[in-house]
Design a protein around this nucleic acid. Structure first.
Length: 885
RNA sequence: GCCCAGAUGGCGGAACUGGUAGACGCGUCAGACUCAAAAUCUGGUAUUGGCAACAAUGUGCAGGUUCGAUUCCUGUUCUGGGCACCA
């Protein structure tokens, strides 16, 4: 557990100024532009002071739907005081119901409860992955196969106090804002899908159940297709749905409880990803509001609690997942779309004509939607409803390293700290273990808990949501960034970042910007004017496969885990890749059983279940594909007693190409390359690899070519024997032509971020200038200015070699002199029936008739025509000629 | 499973708005220089057939639109990114 904490934080003693400077110097060395890093931001008190300040402003603000903007919470208090209970501040979308009595007298706690429902950063309870054995909370990617990645301990869900950002209040504006920013369509689509705005209806069904309950239960579902109301064959509620507490009759309780226990052991990701269909009948029925039919209510993990009402009406003939579910559990399917449903697969069309649908019969589905909603509203059993897939963003972490929340807890109420007491600095701690109930490490600090300070810390995206504003005014100690500074600099003109931020960072920072804009602290409500997605450099990851076993009704002394006959933590067993490939076969079961018997020296062991968890292993302890078993045992303490099931005496690792990332243990260090070739070569090679947007595996073959190019460039200025060879002679037209053609190509390439073709143009240029034997200063100077963005160090060096005093960065970018580039004719490709057969040199200003005459007179063309007259001659100026026969 | 993107020689890639497919670089083959090596330079290099001129085929796969498709449309396969606690 401690190791976890250390993995996730940097010891404050190490993250000193020196460390940051070293880090910067490293980045500088390899020619990277310094962007930002979590370590850098959070270790700078002024950053976290102002992050905390903004958090407080979010806490003290609410979102006024009528005005579509954030306002100070005092406005809300006044509004509520003035209008009391009679008018809800957000009619139509009540988040909260309270009575006049609640509000009367302003009971402190009640008031806070109400305000908490409006605050833009608020506190609540949320589910986390909880690992009892490690006593810690785990991130989703630290859970593999339902057990902890490290140690293989069972993981279950647990409710814990969490902070949230009310980003859902900004859903519409985040959607609309996409229209005014220059992002790729793919990025916009990802964001709008994430927000997931949909139009539909909430429909409430009465319930028939033999279970005893005080109130008459009802079930509200959300659907985008109320037109299919008569095709409902069953209902499904999420396993977390509260209704399960009140509607399950005695005779179904055991079955439902068993199912819920199973679900609790599975992550949300697994629930979405797995193809297997699971579910359980609750024993209760919903009553169809129009025809009174009893519709069975099921619970299944394919319905997620966080979306809509956490319950759906299932229409198997129109929805693929519902269809599969019905098939799997033999639920009869009602067809409401006639021939459009073939009985073999669902048809999600909106264009079929409805039948078996009472008052909707004969209508096209598309039109029936509105009619159905109107009828539902009229009868008071449903309401029109806009729904968003996006949920509020979890804004707290149970970690040490992050901005502490400036919140003091008093009698269960979160009280914001005084702004002038910021920053609230992280305490120095010795141990990074999690708190007693899985809280952050701060829960272990007596001075911290004695002050009743919040023990969660903020996530990385707190700082990354606004850091670009701080860059505009880094030394300001009055505010996070003065309005003058942010007005002067405006939006970030160009943001280069990966698509992996599409639905995280890039949405959060857009929300923060809108919030700061609403409150008048900045003058623009979108942070980034233009976004370019660079591709990811991929690494080759290596995997080991850990066995997760249950042993048949047998106690294995000292190897139990949580009372289960489960082999886990202390003797992890790893299976070689080749054996893993046999998974599912009887031979596999046999091999594993034999292996396990050998390892524990107990021939009576019988295995009940076997599953394999693929785990990343550091590429540095793998030679090709073969794992260095001894190094592996030392790599992580929990693997010290590891046992291996080998193939031919070797442990072979699995391989996958993934993004290169520290957490995937597949990184390579560029230091060696920089030492060998220099940072210009390294930088240029990265640019030359391919388009910026493309992802590709890291591969250094080919770096020689770029290095040779820079040496060739150098030889334009220096000769091994003669030394300096550049001259002050006047350049010829031919030399200018080569130069300006190069500059033009490089400029165009750079402007459209096509750096690889930019490098290519520079290579061609240098080759041509070398061929012309040109060493003239006036040409070379312009050439290296063009090169500067690609290879800044060598350019600067050569600039000074030629006697310039100031930096090349201050030199004006050379303007292309078009007069050297004018052409009067072109070699046209001539195609017969679209297939290029020859080339003809024709003047650029030739007319269609002239071209036809020239082309048809050509011997080769006549050969292909075989004496026939052409159907058509297509002539596209400056492009090509096509003769259709 | 859902959302997004990509697929072109032995390899990375180029072809910008539907107009000469394979620029540029790597690798490789042949040659020059050299006692030799390194470095450098010259030439060839999509596949198949041919001494050659040239011809046929060719941009993941199956179709379609067009005088003309790597580019547009429909379907499909595979690979990568994201899926809410990696940031």
């Amino acid at each position: 557990a401690e190791q976890y904490a250390i993995d996730h934080g940097i010891h404050p003693a190490v993250s000193t100024e020196t460390n940051i400077n070293n880090f910067r110097r490293q980045l500088d060395n390899i020619g990277f532009c310094f962007d930002w890093s979590r370590e850098f931001r959070t270790s700078t008190p002024s950053y976290y002071k102002w992050t905390q300040w903004i958090f407080l402003q979010l806490f003290k603000s609410w979102y006024d739907r009528k005005q579509a903007k954030a306002r100070p919470i005092e406005d809300l208090v006044q509004l509520l005081e003035k209008e009391g209970n009679s008018s809800h501040p957000c009619p139509g979308e009540p988040r909260l119901r309270f009575t006049a009595a609640d509000w009367k007298g302003f009971d402190h706690r009640r008031k806070e409860e109400i305000l908490m429902n409006y605050r833009l950063s608020y506190c609540g309870y949320g589910e986390v992955n909880w690992c009892e054995a490690l006593g810690t909370v785990l991130a989703n990617d630290e859970v593999v196969n339902g057990v902890s990645e490290r140690g293989g301990h069972p993981v279950v869900k647990k409710k814990l106090r969490q902070w949230y950002l009310r980003i859902t209040d900004y859903a519409d504006r985040l959607l609309e804002g996409l229209e005014k920013v220059d992002f790729s369509d793919a990025m916009k689509e990802m964001q709008s899908n994430w927000i997931g705005k949909s139009f539909g209806a909430e429909i409430t069904f009465d319930i028939y159940t033999t279970a005893k309950s005080r109130e008459k239960p009802s079930l509200t579902v959300y659907t985008t297709r109320p037109d299919t109301l008569f095709g409902v064959d069953f209902m499904v509620v999420a396993p977390e749905h509260e209704i399960l507490n009140s509607i399950v009759p005695e005779d179904q309780k055991a079955a439902v409880d068993e199912y819920l226990a199973y679900v609790k052991s599975r992550s949300e990701r697994e629930r979405m990803a797995e193809k297997k269909i699971t579910g359980c009948f609750t024993g209760a029925y919903a009553i169809h509001p129009f025809n009174g039919l009893h519709i069975p209510i099921w619970t299944s993990e394919y319905v997620l609690a966080g979306y809509g009402t956490g319950a759906i009406m299932a229409v198997p003939c129109g929805d693929e997942r519902d269809f599969k579910f019905a098939r799997h559990f033999d639920i009869p399917i009602t067809n409401i779309i006639g021939d459009a449903f073939n009985g073999q697969e669902a048809n999600p069309t909106k264009d079929a004509i409805l039948e078996n649908s009472d008052f909707l019969d004969g209508l096209v589905m598309r039109d029936a939607i509105v009619i159905a909603i109107n009828k539902l509203e009229e009868k008071g059993i449903g309401v029109r409803k806009v729904n968003y897939r996006m949920r509020d963003a979890a804004f707290s972490r149970q970690r040490y390293w992050g901005e502490p929340f400036p919140i003091v807890w008093k009698d269960g109420i979160a009280v914001p700290m005084d702004e002038k007491d910021l920053p609230l600095e992280l305490p120095h701690i010795e141990k990074y273990g999690p708190g007693p109930e899985g809280e952050g490490p701060l829960a272990n600090v007596p001075e911290w808990t004695a002050r009743h300070l919040e023990t969660n810390t903020m996530p990385g995206y707190a700082g990354s949501s606004w850091y670009f504003l701080r860059y505009m005014d880094p030394h300001n100690d009055k505010t996070f960034c003065s309005r003058e500074a942010s007005d002067y600099w405006g939006q970030v003109d160009l943001y280069i970042g990966g698509t992996e931020h599409a639905v995280g960072h890039l949405l959060y920072s857009r929300m923060w910007t809108k919030f700061l804009y609403d409150r008048g602290w900045i003058g623009h409500d979108e942070p980034y004017k233009r976004l370019v997605n660079q591709g990811m450099i991929q690494g080759s990851s290596r995997f080991v496969y850990r066995l997760e076993l249950k042993v048949k009704a047998q106690e294995l002394k000292g190897r139990n885990d949580g009372g289960q006959p489960f082999i886990g933590s202390d003797v992890p067993i790893f299976v070689s890749y080749g054996i893993r490939a046999m998974e599912g076969t009887p031979e596999f079961h046999e091999l594993i059983t034999l292996g396990v018997r050998n390892i524990f020296n107990d021939p009576s062991i019988e295995l009940e279940t076997i599953s394999l968890s693929p785990l990343h292993v550091d590429v540095n302890i793998v030679d090709g594909l073969e794992l260095d078993v001894e190094a592996f045992k030392q790599w992580r303490s929990e693997n010290a007693n590891a046992q291996f099931i080998l193939e031919e005496g070797k442990y072979i690792c699995g391989v996958e190409v993934e993004k290169m990332s520290k957490r995937l243990y597949n990184t390579v260090n560029p230091d060696d390359l920089v030492a060998r070739y220099g940072s210009d070569t390294f930088r240029m090679y990265e640019m030359f690899l391919g388009p910026v947007e493309a992802s590709k595996p890291w591969d250094t073959k080919g770096i020689e070519g770029v290095h040779r190019f820079l040496r060739k460039l150098w030889r334009l200025f220096f000769d091994e024997t003669k030394g300096k060879i550049w001259t002050t002679e006047k350049a010829t037209d031919a030399e200018w032509k080569v130069l300006y053609r190069t500059i033009k190509k490089v400029e165009e390439a750079t402007e459209r971020f096509s750096f690889n073709t930019g490098v290519s143009a520079l290579m061609i240029g240098v080759n041509e200038i070398t061929d012309l034997n040109c060493h003239k200063k006036e040409v070379l100077e312009k050439l290296i200015i063009t090169l500067t963005p690609y290879a800044p160090h060598i350019s600067e060096e050569l600039w000074h070699v030629m006697g310039n005093e100031s930096s090349i960065l201050d030199a004006p970018y050379p303007a292309v002199e078009e007069k050297y580039l004018v052409e009067s004719s072109k070699n046209y490709p001539v195609a017969i029936n679209g297939k290029t057969r020859t080339e003809l040199n024709i003047a650029l200003d030739a007319t269609q008739q002239q071209v036809e005459d020239i082309v048809l007179a050509d011997e080769l063309v006549r050969k292909w025509l075989e004496g026939k007259a052409p159907k058509k001659v297509i002539y596209v100026r400056n492009k090509m000629i096509n003769v259709v026969v």
